[in-house]
Design a protein around this nucleic acid. Structure first.
Lengths: 245, 245
DNA sequence: ATCTCAAATTTGTCTAGACATCTATACCAT
DNA sequence: ATGGTATAGATGTCTAGACAAATTTGAGAT
């Protein structure tokens, strides 16, 4: 397998041809998820091109999220995730949308701060009013799925931080505080490029898109009790909307 | 402004420092949206680095969507769009979700083909059954918003292509064919990196994420009449869900 | 066996130069 | 004026080589 018959001077850049070929080998399973690709130097020899040309091709694949590059170790085929996982996840639509119970998760931080413009507007309070912020990492099957920031009006729930620390759960804490039945008023969804911190938490390359959902939960009387912004690893989750819910 | 005092050998790659500096100038407004950046050669001189190093920095910015590179013309600061537009757009939630009437749009193509697996499943027909495919570009304020592929079972709507060509509208055509009242059964949303063709149609850099919505419309009896997949320019649209709709 | 440290391996960065390809401009012929 | 064509200017691709930084490996000391 030394000659890789690339066509030179046909209008298609060599690195594109190489990227295409590698991609095919990954999709077809010749390179299994988790496998290490040949080293850059080795591929350069195989394809009879300069190492930089290989690097350009591999960089394109990394951008697409097909491979993961690790300095000093090598380039690895990204383990696929869009298999059963997504189908399993699609059953959790209500939770996914409501940001309430999640398969599992970790509390990252609980803090208090004055409400910014957007937060204040969503919670229908004055800008600068203190809010309780809970940062939470949602996981499923041990893989990070989402990073969510939940905002609560501190005036209404002064003991929320302690209660959350006690129970370890947002929904449990809310229940104890007498708001067991809150419902989702509105959810917005869009896509963004991940910020560094989120990308790291989600174990996702900084180049890859994340899903961003933003929503407000209201109590039985229609008063907002929670505003949340969640960032989702887009290749590990698919959000499902059904009119019935 | 010749000396740009980069710090060499401090652990931070030159191209990162340059990218950071350019980004700062863009965010701060020194380089206005739509402006052309200095040429690569010129920046190479200014920063006293090789042209390739500049290219690496600019490529990073392009990946982030801050600039747009045009061969033969130059590199331009990407004009931002997330201003009033988004807020204006958020009013169109039902349409956005239903893929029915859109602010304006263009029919790109109408063709017939055997149904693939996913299409067949959604329409509850056998794989390989002929379907009518309508490709449509959705615009708002003259800017492309979405590219949608609509799939209809040809067996049930044999004259659909002609009717669409006559009316120029999908919803009008469906009405004429006796399915005036179809409703959305389910919508899935996720994010992907744009494919080349879609990126071009959406006038979006190929590196930027797109929103992908997928849905099935059913008639009054619950039978699927349409399956659609739409790709949205993620920075120009925000999809809004309200339980009421 | 275990620890340490040097060497080898592998990816990351930077420079240098050549030519290709695309775009806009200016000039010339009609 | 119009249209084509040469030219200059811009980004795109490819090669070549050197060194840096991170990781793994293995030899040697304990």
């Amino acid at each position: 397998m030394t000659d890789q018959d690339l066509s030179r001077g046909t209008g298609t850049a060599l690195w594109r041809q190489i990227a295409e070929r590698l991609k095919r080998d990954i999709v077809s399973g010749t390179h299994q998820p988790g496998d290490r690709l040949p080293t850059e130097l080795r591929m350069a020899e195989e394809f009879s091109v300069n190492r930089h040309t290989i690097r350009r091709a591999v960089a394109a694949l990394a951008e697409q999220g097909l491979v993961r590059i690790e300095q000093g170790r090598g380039t690895f085929v990204q383990e696929s995730v869009i298999d059963y996982r997504v189908k399993k996840r699609t059953r959790f639509s209500e939770n996914v949308l409501g940001h309430r119970r999640e398969p599992s998760g970790k509390l990252l931080a609980i803090r208090e701060e004055p409400a910014e413009e957007a937060v204040a507007k969503a919670l229908e309070i004055r800008k600068g009013t203190m809010v309780v912020v809970v940062e939470r990492l949602g996981e499923a099957d041990g893989r990070p799925l989402s990073v969510a920031s939940h905002y609560f009006p501190k005036g209404r729930f002064p003991s929320l931080p302690d209660t959350i620390r006690d129970t370890g759960s947002i929904s449990l804490a809310m229940e104890r505080l007498g708001v067991g039945d809150y419902t989702r008023k509105v959810t917005r969804v869009t896509a963004r490029t991940a910020r560094a911190a989120d990308a790291q938490l989600l174990q996702q390359s900084p180049n890859k898109p994340i899903l961003l959902t933003e929503g407000v939960n209201v109590d039985a009387t229609g008063r907002p009790v929670e505003y949340s912004v969640a960032r989702w690893a887009s290749d590990r989750v698919q959000i499902v909307f059904e009119p019935g819910t």
